[in-house]
Design a binder for these strands. Structure first.
Lengths: 101, 101
DNA sequence: AATACCAATCGTACATTTACGATAAGAAAT
DNA sequence: ATTTCTTATCGTAAATGTACGATTGGTATT
């Protein structure tokens, strides 16, 4: 790999990793993801009952996780079912893995 | 393990993990750590030359990494040598590892 | 003791994050 | 069409994060 290209790739990887880390940088969001790992899926309302937070706050955290690509929402009227986005999840996993050696 | 204790431990683990993630949640801090992984150690001045940031800004990022426990500084007058804190590093590593399964 | 060097800290400005209550939006069921 | 249920979005306030220049602090060296 060319040296210049190396730098670009590394820069991208760094930014991507920082982005994932930022999304994981709040206890509530970690807890949501842990819950999704156990349950595989859940509805917004479930989380609102679990956490001592307003519904709007939980929704906001879900939005950030969705923006980071770590979860995805599926319409299950009148609810919305959230699951981990396995594709992005494994990307994040390997980025953290290789970061920590 | 008792159920109640389980919750406490999990809660702590969640918070610790979120804390590490937060420290990793900025491209500059990821880049600093990547650099430290390569070099094993470096001085503040080295980083100031690498990054297009003010000395005070770099220092601030170093402080956050130090607060998170991921790095440690050692007096090498008139410089300060920074290294990865291997102990905390491996704690962070295993927390992320088990988080991602 | 005075100087020089390097890095931390201070003060500050601006942007982002986090939380809340209130309101709007979407899809089904009546 | 209206109502109901669930969740997203809006508006807002307080806290935190990020960046800078200027200043301070700490450690040798002269």
């Amino acid at each position: 790999m060319k040296r210049s290209l190396e730098h670009i790739v590394d820069k991208e990887g760094t930014e991507t990793l920082a982005n994932f880390a930022k999304a994981l940088g709040h206890p509530t969001r970690i807890a949501i993801l842990k819950h999704l790992e156990n349950q595989s899926c859940c509805y917004t309302g479930d989380l609102v009952e679990i956490f001592p937070l307003a519904q709007s706050t939980v929704s906001q955290h879900l939005k950030e996780l969705k923006n980071a690509g770590l979860i995805q929402g599926e319409l299950r009227p009148p609810k919305i079912k959230y699951c981990i986005n396995q594709e992005k999840w494994s990307i994040a996993k390997s980025l953290f893995q290789q970061f920590f050696d």
